[in-house]
Each structure stands twice: as C-alpha cells, then as structure tokens.
Design a protein around this nucleic acid. Structure first.
Lengths: 166, 166
DNA sequence: CTTTAATTTGCAACAATGTAACATTGTTTC
DNA sequence: GAAACAATGTTACATTGTTGCAAATTAAAG
C-alpha cells in the first residue's frame, strides 16, 4: 500500500522534514499550476503543518497572531479555500478543522485515520475503495465524484497509554 | 448488496411508507433498549424524516415552530444527541446536518451517497469496507472503531437534469 | 515605464451554529 | 407521597463561518 502520511503516527518522527517536504511540494505544485502561493497563504499552510492534529480557522488566526501577524477570519478562510482547492490542505468536517496534505495532486479522494483521544490524523490513499463505492453506487445510478472516508479510532500511542478500556 | 435506504434516490417513492417504517423501527428499538422516545424526540425524528435531505438543527427548530412548537436550540441538540446515540439519526458532518436512519441497530459504520446538487442522501451499509480499512490501518497499529464514508456525486435525477457538464 | 485590470488582502459588521448553566417540569422508585 | 432521577425550558454566551466593500498588491496591456 502506498501511504500518504505514514509519519503522523510515528512518535518522534522528523517533523521538520514533514514540513519541509510539504512546503517544497506545495511550492512546486503552485508553480506548475500557475497559481500564487503568496506569503500569507504560505504562512497559513505552515500553521496547519505545525502538527498532524487538524487546526481550526480561529486557531490559525491565533497561531499567526502569535507570530505577530494580525490576520482576521475572512482572510484565513480565503487562504484555506485556496489551499484546499489546490489540494494542499484537507478539511476534516467532523472536526471543523484542517490538516496538511503532502500530495498536492489528486485530492478528490482520501481516507483519514483520526485518533479520538489526541486528534492526530493520518491520511491514506483511498485506493480500491473508490472503485467499490462507485460500483455499489452505480446500482442506484448514482455517479460518485469524490470519496472521503473517516476512520475513528485510537492511534498507537493513545492505545498504549489508556489500554483497551473506555 | 444489502442496502439500507434504497428509496432515497427513487423519484416519487412512497415516502409516507419510509417515515412510517422508520418510526415503527424507532419505537420498537427504543422499547427494546429501555430508552424513552418522548413526544419531543419523536417530533424531532419526524422533522428529520421529512425528506431524505439532511436537516440542520436550526431548520429543525423552524420546522417544529411551523407546527406550533416553540423549541429552542439546546432542546433540539439534546434530542438529536439522543437520537444519534440510539442510531435513529446520523450526523452528516460535511453538511452540519442530520439524516434519518431506518436501521436503529449497528450504527458504528456507514456509507453515505450525497448528491452535491440537491443534497439528497442515501445510506449504504459499510460492509467489507470496514475490514479493508481496519487491515490497512493495522499496518500503523491504528485501531479502527468507526468508519464513515461520504461519497459526493450526482443522484440520478440531478444527473439527468444537468447532464455531465459542470 | 505607465496605466489598466485583476487578484489578493484588510476590515467591520454580521449570520449561523453550537454550548453552559441553571430553573422547571415530568417520571420512576420506594 | 417523597426522594431521586430524567427530560425539557430558558437565558446567555461561545464558536464558527460569511458578506460586502475598501485598500493594497500584483499581473497584463499599451
């Protein structure tokens, strides 16, 4: 299986590398697509990439404010809209929050493993799931365009910390 | 495939029957579980079942108000929480809205076909998808508990109306 | 290089959604 | 019926997301 964000669940992984890689990919992607990864958008992207825990729009405002940039909600939402449109971040609807994506290409499908304790999110490619869903939906003449899957559970760390209880 | 809500995409289906069946199932389920489907909760459930388009909490307030019941948000949210806890409705996070479920039993997993034009939602059982996701997630020692899949696309009606364009 | 047009950002006000805390009413149990 | 519990009503508030327009920046045309 070709995984998209294996690092998220590796405790003490080289996150600097995560971020650098994501920013490089984003920069390249935008250049190729002829769209502008402006300083503001880059800052928002960096804020989102601060961790593998999805960040809400208002948390992004706060994060930028902490760096001395006074950025208000509409600006953040617009930046996020740009980033999502270009596959640089994904919205996690059940959390009203956003997570970075390091595969700016095909962003129509995705699987998200979400830890219900710490909120960590790892993204896996949708893979064959899309075909299965498309086939099943086809029985009702429903034309599937995008597939999003959220798997709620426990990440390795949290499972270890709290055991199987609760 | 054992489908859970085939009717949603059948234009002009007997919706009265949908609702009756759902309410009967809900009543039975609550009796068996020893939980109380109070008049208020029943009203909220009915409001949700008004159509196969998910309804927001505030829309439910309005719908009940239209029937002469002045019901404020906290009340609706509590009723919805009860209904969801008992698998009688499902939250569609990407729409901040709720849809009725006619299979009050196992509500840990689900697939939702969502029409991006008219908002119609049909629910399919998750089936094998859960195993696949669980296996893949297992490679990262992630323990999957619940799987939710949203397939965005076009329902038969809307596909016919607007063609393949846009 | 300068003007024009388009895009992006700043900003104020607001709309929509969701929650906390506590009072009140209703239901069950003994 | 009294105590304990569950459900609902109500107020006030917190969070999240949007609209509309002005200012600034950047790209495009002459």
């Amino acid at each position: 299986m070709n995984m998209q964000n294996p690092a998220a669940f590796e405790r003490g992984h080289d996150h600097q590398r995560c971020v650098r890689q994501a920013l490089d990919a984003a920069t390249l992607h935008c250049r190729r697509e002829g769209v502008r990864l402006t300083p503001l958008r880059r800052k928002v992207l960096l804020a989102v990439w601060d961790s593998h825990i999805p960040l809400g729009a208002y948390q992004i405002c706060d994060a930028l404010a902490a760096h001395g940039d006074r950025v208000l909600p509409p600006t953040v939402y617009r930046a996020l809209e740009f980033l999502e449109r270009n596959g640089l971040v994904h919205r996690i609807p059940s959390a009203n929050a956003f997570i970075g994506c390091n595969q700016p290409g095909a962003h129509h499908h995705g699987r998200y493993l979400i830890c219900r304790d710490c909120g960590l999110v790892a993204e896996l490619p949708a893979g064959d799931l899309v075909d299965t869903v498309r086939r099943d939906a086809g029985h009702f003449d429903f034309a599937v365009e995008r597939v999003r899957l959220e798997a709620l559970g426990r990440c390795p760390d949290c499972a270890a910390k709290r055991g199987k209880d609760r």
